[in-house]
């Protein structure tokens, strides 16, 4: 089964990376993990079929390079998960210089301390590995950060602001259009973008401040999520079914659009969306149910359409 068909049709538009520099937020709860969703993002980004048969030819000569940084799970886990769920051979992609893994365990690009400057340096060296300076065109890069909020718990002096600042610095590092003005060489940079996917937990236990004196960690965990949500163009949150456990449903996926996609590329501000605001409903969010199978396959369906 090719990786393309591992992404359910309903999910397809939401795991596709936007056409401009963006930050996407993926949130999980204890009962509903987002590993399967991150794998689907990988499938869409690393899938070569996409570039040949895509709706536009914008990415035809630009590979998407992926840097995956995980604080919660190690390389072996993601390798197995990607093979099982997405049919991706991360080992081979790593050799092909399309994928890099930043990890706490030795072997690849390694983080030995929770220091943020070290994170920046490591991502930079991973980027240099994926994209040597000899290459003529800068590629589209995707940086996945799996649960960086763990850093807040390990380093008490770290504030949510410094973490979000680091994320923006990383985006500036990856994006050719932020570091150099787009007017200088528009033809070269037009289709290369930098995307960051942030995966954060959204459990009540971590977010809701306990009365009467909330702990600093609770406030930090709440603030990092809220700030990240304000920064991101699209929010995908997984949660368990509100009504309890069901045999044929793993959880609910809510996708909301923050309208951040318009804001990029220089001319976005003056691209008027005439008549777009006349929609009867006016809502931007959608909800789906999903079921992760034992074999790693995922079925995504609308409410009331499942049960096969």
């Amino acid at each position: 089964m090719p990786p393309a068909s591992r992404v359910p049709a309903l999910l397809q538009p939401y795991v596709r990376l936007p056409n401009s520099d963006s930050i996407l937020l993926v949130t999980s709860t204890l009962g509903a993990s987002t590993n399967w969703l991150l794998i689907r993002f990988l499938c869409d980004a690393l899938n070569p079929v996409r570039h040949d048969a895509g709706q536009k030819s914008d990415n035809s000569n630009n590979d998407v390079k992926v840097i995956f940084a995980s604080w919660m799970r190690d390389w072996e886990f993601w390798k197995a998960e990607a093979r099982k769920g997405g049919g991706l051979d991360l080992e081979r992609l790593k050799r092909d210089k399309r994928f890099a893994f930043v990890d706490g365990t030795p072997g690849h690009f390694t983080l030995t301390s929770p220091d943020l400057t070290q994170l920046q340096e490591t991502v930079k060296s991973a980027l240099e590995y994926l994209n040597p300076s000899t290459s003529p065109t800068p590629p589209t890069t995707l940086l996945i950060l799996d649960d960086p909020s763990l850093l807040l718990a390990t380093v008490p002096s770290l504030t949510p602001s410094s973490l979000t600042s680091t994320i923006l610095k990383l985006q500036a590092l990856l994006s050719p259009s932020i570091s150099t003005p787009p007017t200088s060489s528009p033809s070269q940079n037009a289709h290369a973008h930098a995307h960051i996917i942030l995966s954060l937990p959204a459990d009540d236990a971590l977010l809701a401040p306990s009365a009467p004196t909330p702990q600093p960690l609770e406030i930090s965990a709440h603030n990092i999520l809220v700030k990240a949500a304000h920064m991101s163009a699209r929010i995908l949150s997984c949660r368990v079914l509100d009504t309890g456990v069901a045999r044929d449903v793993s959880g609910v996926l809510r996708v909301t659009d923050n309208g951040g996609g318009r804001r990029a590329g220089g001319e976005g501000l003056l691209d008027f969306d005439d008549g777009g605001g006349d929609g009867a409903e006016g809502r931007t969010g959608r909800e789906f149910l999903y079921k992760v199978g034992g074999d790693g396959g995922v079925r995504v369906f609308e409410r009331g359409n499942g049960g096969e």
Binding site: L225, R254, G282
Partner: peptide, 20 residues
């Protein structure tokens, strides 16, 4: 949204209404 109190909900479905 966050005030709703349901675990795992970050943003409500009607957020950022496109009508205005």
């Amino acid at each position: 949204g966050l005030l709703q109190g349901a675990e795992g909900i970050v943003q409500c479905l009607e957020a950022n209404d496109i009508r205005g």
